[in-house]
């Protein structure tokens, strides 16, 4: 039997397969390059990059929860210059697409990062308006219809590369936010970012996270993510990168059936350093078993 065609196209960018890394769970690939062949990935989405270095939140920043985890890292990163100098030059050695997740406190800060990246050799920008762990910017843009559209528009004007907008699930109506960013010029949508959560140590009676609240990720949130991908895919025409608790190829296929073209592996990287490759192999196995020739066929095969 012929091998299925794994290639996908997101906003004109050809990915050799649909497996992408979720921002913040893969660094800039260096650490995982010791465990897997990065050339095998469809794309690498790097950890959020700001215009100047950010220190992030105080420790503890991690709390394990049932089937998932909370984090309140707060987008600690060395800034766009350090990213270009160290991480980008490393990533360019690999045959995979590079998606840069950008963060900011103001529209101007986001635009400065996009501008600085405009003459670099990256493939796409992912606009992060959904991080729940920073006080200004981040999710405050992603939960307000007007702001979401405005910031998308501003960054789209500045960016030279196709723009993915990453949505927050911490909203009442995900579809209206999706429509707003598409109206603002988003070339693709990725979802979901983490769900705002909290955990308390009952012995010390203190919140586990120094930041008190944090973002929940992992398989515990997958049904929420599947539902939101399904709703958004029905409502907009841009391609979708689905994520939220993908641990296996089967999980990834579930996102495709819900309407995702690409899939991103996040927390699973922490449980298993080869998770991305295992997911890729799992998708291929599923396609062979079920006679799918390409990803688009899976995406259109949901039976209601």
């Amino acid at each position: 039997m012929n091998k299925p065609d794994m290639q996908i196209n997101i906003a004109g960018v050809e990915l050799k397969n649909p497996v992408i890394t979720a921002s913040g769970t893969f660094g800039s690939g260096k650490e995982y390059s010791e465990y897997i062949d990065l050339n095998k990935l469809g794309a690498i989405t790097v950890k959020g990059v700001s215009d100047i270095p950010w220190k992030g939140n105080d420790s503890p920043r991690i709390a394990e929860t049932y089937g998932g985890m909370l984090n309140s890292v707060g987008l600690q990163n060395p800034g766009v210059e350090a990213f270009i100098e160290e991480d980008l030059s490393f990533l360019k050695r690999y045959d995979t697409k590079i998606i840069v997740n950008i963060v900011g406190r103001t529209v101007e800060e986001y635009c400065r990062v996009a501008e600085r990246l405009s003459d670099t050799d990256i493939d796409m920008i992912e606009l992060n308006i959904s991080c729940p762990n920073v006080k200004e910017g981040g999710v405050s843009f992603g939960t307000d219809l007007l702001m979401a559209e405005r910031i998308t528009e501003a960054v789209k004007k500045t960016a030279k590369q196709p723009l993915i907008v990453k949505l927050s699930p911490n909203v009442t109506d995900i579809v209206s936010i999706a429509k707003a960013v598409v109206a603002g010029g988003a070339d693709a949508i990725s979802l979901i970012n983490t769900l705002l959560g909290m955990a308390i140590d009952i012995n010390t009676r203190k919140p586990i996270l120094a930041n008190i609240v944090g973002g929940l990720s992992g398989p515990a949130i997958r049904p929420v993510a599947i539902r939101m991908v399904y709703e958004v895919a029905k409502a907009v025409d841009v391609p979708i990168i689905g994520m939220g608790g993908i641990m296996t190829g089967e999980d990834a296929v579930e996102f495709m059936l819900a309407g995702a073209t690409g899939v991103a592996v996040g927390m699973a990287n922490f449980t298993n350093p080869t998770a991305t490759i295992d997911v890729l192999n799992g998708i291929e196995d599923y396609m062979i078993r079920h006679g799918f020739n390409n990803i688009e066929e899976i995406r259109k095969s949901l039976i209601l």
Partner: peptide, 16 residues
């Protein structure tokens, strides 16, 4: 010692 997730320098969860 700090609460960790990945253990290999990726998640930036365990800082001091």
């Amino acid at each position: 010692e700090e609460r960790m997730a990945c253990g290999i320098g990726v998640c930036v969860g365990c800082v001091c």
